[in-house]
Nucleic acid binder design. Sequence first.
DNA 1: AGGTACATGTAAGCTGTTACATGATTTT
DNA 2: AAAATCATGTAACAGCTTACATGTACCT
Lengths: 178, 178
Amino acid sequence: MDVKTLCLGLLSRGDYSGYEIRKQFEEGAFSHFQDAGFGSIYPALKRLTEEGLATCSAQAQESRPDKKVYRITPRGREALFEAVNEPPAPDKLRSDFMFVLYFADLVPPRQLDRLIAGRIAHHEEVIARLEAIDLSRRTSEEAFVIRYGIALHRAARDYFETHRHELVGDSIRSGATA
Amino acid sequence: MDVKTLCLGLLSRGDYSGYEIRKQFEEGAFSHFQDAGFGSIYPALKRLTEEGLATCSAQAQESRPDKKVYRITPRGREALFEAVNEPPAPDKLRSDFMFVLYFADLVPPRQLDRLIAGRIAHHEEVIARLEAIDLSRRTSEEAFVIRYGIALHRAARDYFETHRHELVGDSIRSGATA
DNA sequence: AGGTACATGTAAGCTGTTACATGATTTT
DNA sequence: AAAATCATGTAACAGCTTACATGTACCT
């Protein structure tokens, strides 16, 4: 799924500027399974407009660049319909963190401990962010996906809390603290 | 983490050919958090050799191309050490499947039901594959990562089994089957 | 005085994917 | 007879990331 389709999806639920779209990728309901930065969002919105899948209206603002608000067109909705009815490509996960853990014997115990603490904190953050979303204002599909995110991040957090001692516990207790 | 470093990691646990490395990405302990195809593995191994991080010995085989077996060098081990002691980049997950679910109202209920059934089956497959790994032959770090994979895929499977009715249950029961 | 949030965009570069090229052996 | 497995590699392409370019307003 390219960034173009991702943007189209967001626009199907409301009118947004590129800046707002990026914020949704960063903080919104999508944030736990998709990502995109300015460098891919702006060109994507441009192409969406060129292809007639969205329209753009520039809103003049004082002492700021024009805010360009995009709106999905009927043809854009068709394109989104077709995209979600295609068999989805397999998930792609790339976790440098897990790679590091796989070779955790090469990492000093202290650093490893900090790393895992940071990971747990990160999961807590994501959980808090997703829990803060008011589900009563969302479609049941959206709520399903958001709750999935919460469930998965909780599972990850719980795993680390329960098993972290298997990685760092012993090394910390023996001489490493000297 | 680029494919070069990923290959270096695998080579730190044994000598392998490009073909075998790909199999490990596909089926091995890594498979649930990293991925790479031939098109990136072969060039990566070539560069590893050029940079003196691995050596390559071609083993002649009858009626097959030479099998090129790579072995990590001491400098390769140093490079791996440095890589895993760098702060890891944040995880990157791209899930077209979750995107589709987010807009599941656009998908016919039957198709949605099949999609979710397939997803559950996929999680079962990954769980079975990871459970088949003999942990007694692995380092505790590797076992930790493998068990993490099992835990996460179980959580995902359980979520779908418990909540799938929220997405498709009602639509299936009402007129859609006509 | 400095950092963050608002606001958009381009260009170069890096990386990875897909398709192509080749060919024998083993399994179904 | 077809499909999968073994086995390596290149070239073109697509896509995303990073850095650059610009500037105001508000908060600390």
